[in-house]
Amino acid sequence: MNALKRIALLAALVASAAWAQGNLEINTPAISQIKSGMQARHAQLAPHYASGAVGLGADGAVALRDASAVPLAQRQAVQGLVAQENADRAALYREIARANGHPEWEADIRNTFAQRWIERAQPGWYVQSGGQWSRK
């Protein structure tokens, strides 16, 4: 029995290591489409990240954290940008999970992205952790 357990443990380690070494599939047409939509939108969102109007949420989404940084007449447009960006982000996480044959990974992928967006945010951008906003 002990020998078997050892084999099982070893196998588990090897298996998880093998998973970890692999790459996730992110080159499907759907992912590319979502990505290029987000890329085009980034030019419009970037100044709002810089002004602090929009911040990177802890949930992998973006949030309108201080609309008053934007002139009144443009606030609706920013709300629209945020809504579209979040719809695309949700679709992106879902598609990556689906493209890799594990739809149940969606929440994990969302969490991973949430950390990476925040980690890689430019200095001066607002990021959220534990419900609190802070400036990078």
Partner: peptide
Amino acid sequence: IYFPAAAAEKAADRIIDEVWQ
């Protein structure tokens, strides 16, 4: 079946690179 966290991070970084150029 472990979630491949390292691979996901790598994938996220690649996408972030592209989206944020």
